[in-house]
Nucleic acid binder design. Structure first.
Length: 751
DNA sequence: GACCTGCTGCGGCCTG
């Protein structure tokens, strides 16, 4: 079954021979006839010591691949061992810790070693017992590790001084994120506190797009020391289909406001899709990724009503982040243990490795957000040998009309789905965006380190966090600037003691004492959107790049952003007229450059993929027709009345940056899906400026960043200065150096 | 035109 097995001449597994006796006995008891591929190869790699990444598809047995050798290593030293855990396993999800606890219980028992669960839902009593007699394996979240260091910094050496290894599950979920940076820092602080040069790290993942980045994430600064065990096993056949639907145009909102009932329109558009879903999913075990919480509710309700109408027991259940934990766990348990047909209708909640067993098919509404999420979703089906993975993507576009927005006439959802599947089949997925400064998390880590140690010299803090820790792109000068910012009277997070030690200031004391200090990621931050006279229109997520002068679409109408109060988190807007028809939404996270390029190739090409149904084929044909009609192969600028739309076919950050560069030249430019809208300008005038941008040196990224709102997007950003926030934004979210190249791309098609 | 993740210590009350 397993390709690439490292068998010895007599057929016995070499890896098996390397394992300790109790571990081998446990394997026999499981009735396993052989080790899986990733296990066979992980055993010698891990027993050899050092850092290792285990990359293998979901359900390939990665957890055992890490623990069989780690426990074998720990067993002989069990007698007379000093206190301290042998292995710390870190997971991004509490639910995953609970799954792994169930899975590892028997193995640990067979080895006569304790297994501890440690997260916010575990009783304080169980955690106290684990702390008092630290032995065996502990399954923990990054936040609980942080809390242990902050509250009991003095015990770190006793708890973690004898660790053989740290296992990081779902490594990809941490790469490039604030939370990942925190975990890197916590692991490095543990090494320092334990007086250990390094403690081996084992990273587990199914979806790593770029192994060089994954290595750097596991051991910052020393990626070459991380060995890679990539499993050859897996790769079920894939049956896939993109289904296209044309839906009646959304009604225009009545003049004078009031808005449209978006949910009702959504329900109407969902009907033909729901009918097909009901037909193919009923009676089986499936996952349906609906894209948004509202869509999850709409589709679950539809499918449930259809079951009732057909006098069948309901088998469709919702699963998203706003549902109570017990409701979600009931759906997971039904998928995992219950033989009855079940479809979970979910957001991204079921993408990570929570154990729900194998499903027969995966369906998705819309093209989704990324190729890596597509790959993650696909890994949920086709796990049994000889059974293919089944994926259906449903895409709805507005019914054709000559007045449609150019972006709608280009049928971008269908085109994006086709482009993404092409990249998926090429085995590509988005690398994480790394290289961020993560100053928000640096603020939190500085406070945590002060609390853990009781105070330290600024240079020691820099050595621990930056020079030898994960904030390697923060030099001494920048660290001093951050310290000055958080020591300001209005921040008061830190202060200097008379003997030159960094101490917590009054506000810092309060923050560290708070229950919500341990998590570094931002939650539920939104702008209030205010019209003239202070009338509240609603709220808008903070993660859309907005600048004064740009146009947003809200409550079915277009608005000009008049002013932005980042600290009060408020947008002041006024109604604006537009030649372009209104479309809902405004925020657009953007795709990767390579997806945008693949979309352009799809529009230029003539081939029709076999996985398109008749509806999707028709939509692709319309899209290619519109692409030719606009002359987009030669000219990236389309004039619409008094406005223009630019299609540069670049990813989100370049699109945002280029819109800001135009805004800096007094154009009213706003990024929209895959395009930039520019109000009140002529195509020749716009072309002249783009050509100037192509000839000029790149604009200053920090100056562009200052034009955009939302500098306060991360948790500790409010304590930083405007200058530091612009530096973070320029480094993490903009690509100013690419502006001349993007301009040339636009003009290249004008030539 | 998204979505998701996480959390201590202590005082006071109740039950066996």
């Amino acid at each position: 079954m397993s390709a690439g097995r490292a068998d010895t001449d007599d057929g016995a597994s070499r890896a098996f021979e390397l394992l300790a006796e109790p571990v081998r006995r446990w394997i026999w008891q499981q009735g396993w006839s052989e080790l899986r591929d990733v296990q066979e190869r992980a055993v010698p790699a891990i027993l050899g010591g050092g850092d290792v990444i285990l990359a293998a598809r979901t359900a390939a047995g990665k957890t055992e691949a890490a623990f069989l050798p780690l426990l074998s290593q720990a067993l002989p030293r069990l007698d007379g061992r000093r206190p301290g855990f042998c292995v710390v396993y870190v997971s991004p999800l509490k639910a995953l810790i609970n799954d792994q606890f169930r899975r590892l219980e028997g193995l640990l028992e067979a080895c006569g070693m304790p297994l501890h669960r440690w997260h916010g839902d575990v009783s304080a009593d169980a955690k106290r017992k684990a702390r008092e007699r630290p032995q065996g394996v502990v399954l923990i979240t990054p936040e609980s590790l942080e809390a242990t260091l902050v509250r009991r910094g003095g015990e770190a050496a006793r708890l973690f001084g004898n660790l053989d290894a740290v296992v990081v599950d779902e490594l990809h979920a941490f790469v490039g994120t604030e939370r990942g940076r925190q975990l890197q820092s916590v692991l490095s602080r543990i090494e320092v506190a334990a007086g250990r040069d390094r403690i081996d790290r084992i990273g587990l993942s199914a979806t790593l797009g770029d192994m060089a980045l994954a290595r750097e994430a596991l051991r910052p600064g020393e990626p070459d020391s991380v060995r890679l065990v990539e499993s050859a096993e897996g790769g079920a056949d894939l049956l896939l289909q993109v289904r296209g639907y044309e839906c009646p145009r959304r009604p225009e909102p009545p003049p004078g406001g009031g808005g449209t009932d978006v949910a009702a329109v959504g329900v109407a558009a969902a009907e033909p899709v729901a009918a097909h879903l009901f037909e193919v999913l009923r009676g089986r075990r499936n996952l349906l990724f609906a894209g948004s919480r509202q869509n999850v509710e709409v589709y679950t309700d539809h499918l449930r009503a259809m079951s009732e109408a057909a006098r069948l027991p309901n088998e469709f259940f919702a699963h998203h982040g706003n549902l109570a934990r017990a409701e979600r766990e009931a759906v997971e348990a039904r998928l995992r243990e219950d033989g009855r047909p079940t479809t979970a209708v979910a957001t991204t909640t079921l993408e990570l490795g929570i154990d729900i067993g194998d499903v027969e098919s995966v369906a998705q509404i819309g093209p989704g957000w990324s190729v890596s999420s597509l790959r993650q979703r696909l890994g949920r089906s086709g796990r049994r040998r000889g059974v293919p993975s089944v994926l259906r993507i449903y895409v709805s576009e507005d019914a054709f009309a000559p007045t449609l927005h150019p972006a709608d006439r280009l049928r971008l959802d269908v085109v994006q789905a086709v482009a993404m599947i092409g990249l998926l089949l090429d085995r590509w997925c988005e690398p994480p965006r790394v290289g961020g400064l993560h100053l928000s998390t640096l603020v939190q880590q500085t406070l945590a380190l002060i609390a853990q140690t009781g105070g330290l010299r600024p240079d020691t803090a820099w050595q621990v966090l930056c020079r030898h820790g994960p904030f390697r792109n923060v030099g001494r000068d920048l660290f001093v600037e951050v310290l000055r910012a958080v020591a300001r009277r209005e921040a008061a997070l830190v202060e200097m003691s008379p003997d030159g030690l960094l101490m917590l200031g009054p506000a810092g004391e309060r923050l560290v004492a708070g229950h919500d200090f341990y998590a570094v990621f931002q939650v539920d931050e939104e702008y209030r959107v205010l019209a003239e006279g202070g009338k509240l229109l609603g709220t808008l997520p903070l993660d859309s790049t907005l600048a004064t002068g740009q146009t947003i679409i809200f409550n079915g109408r277009r608005w000009r952003v008049e002013s932005i109060d980042a600290r009060a988190r408020a947008l002041l807007v006024s109604p604006t007229n537009a030649a372009l028809p209104p479309r809902f939404g405004g925020g657009w996270a953007g795709v990767h450059d390579r997806v945008a390029a693949a979309m352009r190739d799809t529009l230029i090409g003539a081939g029709v993929p076999a996985f398109l149904d008749a509806g999707a084929r028709a939509l692709l044909e319309q899209a290619r027709h519109a692409f030719r009609e606009y002359g987009l192969a030669h000219d990236a600028i389309v004039a619409v009345g008094r406005d223009c739309v630019i299609f540069p076919w670049v990813g989100g950050p370049k699109l945002d940056t280029f819109a800001l560069a135009l805004l800096a030249r007094n154009f009213q430019a706003s990024p929209v899906r895959h395009a930039i809208e520019v109000r009140d300008c002529s195509a020749p005038g716009l072309r002249a400026i783009v050509s100037e941008l192509a000839r000029s040196p790149p604009p200053d990224g920090e100056a562009l960043a200052r034009l955009a709102a939302k500098p306060m997007r991360e948790r500790y950003d409010p304590y930083l200065t405007e200058a530091l926030l612009a530096r973070v934004a320029a480094a993490e979210r903009l690509e100013a150096h690419e502006v001349p190249n993007v301009a040339r791309r636009i003009l290249g098609r004008s030539a």
